[in-house]
Design a protein around this nucleic acid. Structure first.
Lengths: 115, 115
DNA sequence: AAAGATACATAAGAATATTATGTATTGATA
DNA sequence: TATCAATACATAATATTCTTATGTATCTTT
């Protein structure tokens, strides 16, 4: 089962930032695979969503990039900037808070073991 | 603190359906106030978001409506249809599942007491 | 040799929110 | 009693952010 895409909306940027905060640096394709792996295929980030998001993070100064060649193939690494680190904490905290609120609002506690 | 709007995206329809499943029938303004109250002002549903959503639920056959006059002021009640009840269970379950996945993906467990 | 995986990117379109605006009634207050 | 806030609906222009489709190219496995 893959989540209906609308749920991903609004959380993609936070997911990307959090992964970058755990991994020093990552490249786009790696991010898609890591998310797929960590979510047991439940979340599949499409390229059309990811690359514009990464470019936005860069133009907002939250990440810096390093382009490298693996053979003849280009690979673009993304790394959190200092402001990106701060932003990550903010976004993750906000999402955690939001999720607590949703658990209460939708009374999810009794039906979800892991929450 | 009010959540940045992007988080609401994708959850609004689920919130509305769940409230309707708990309350027999509700009208639009009532829904905005109930959400505000239950979330201690953290989630404020704007009218520009709510009314189109309610109209979409109606045109999808998930809710039925009853218009009543309170004095001279019109009030439009929304009530879940049978298919709406089924859809509500689906959407709430999916959201709960998604949130479990996010807790794992973003490692939120250690930082959020209520989760 | 071909297919699938790796790796980037962009563009057209859809969905869904924000912000602004509009209409109108009712209740509270100065 | 005039005015403001709250109640109650609705829509339109705009913005954001995703999907889907398309494009290019390399590398690996069969």
């Amino acid at each position: 089962m893959i989540y209906s895409s609308e749920l991903i909306k609004g959380t993609l940027k936070t997911i990307v930032l959090k992964l970058l905060s755990d991994n020093t640096r990552m490249y786009g394709y790696e991010i898609t695979q890591k998310v797929k792996e960590l979510t047991f295929n439940k979340i599949q980030i499409t390229e059309g969503a990811l690359y514009p998001t990464l470019h936005a993070l860069e133009s907002d100064g939250l990440v810096t990039t390093e382009t490298e060649y693996i053979g003849k193939r280009v690979r673009k690494y993304y790394r959190l900037s200092e402001s990106g680190k701060g932003k990550t904490v903010e976004k993750v905290n906000e999402l955690a808070d939001f999720m607590e609120t949703m658990v209460f609002l939708l009374d999810l506690k009794p039906r979800v073991a892991a929450l």
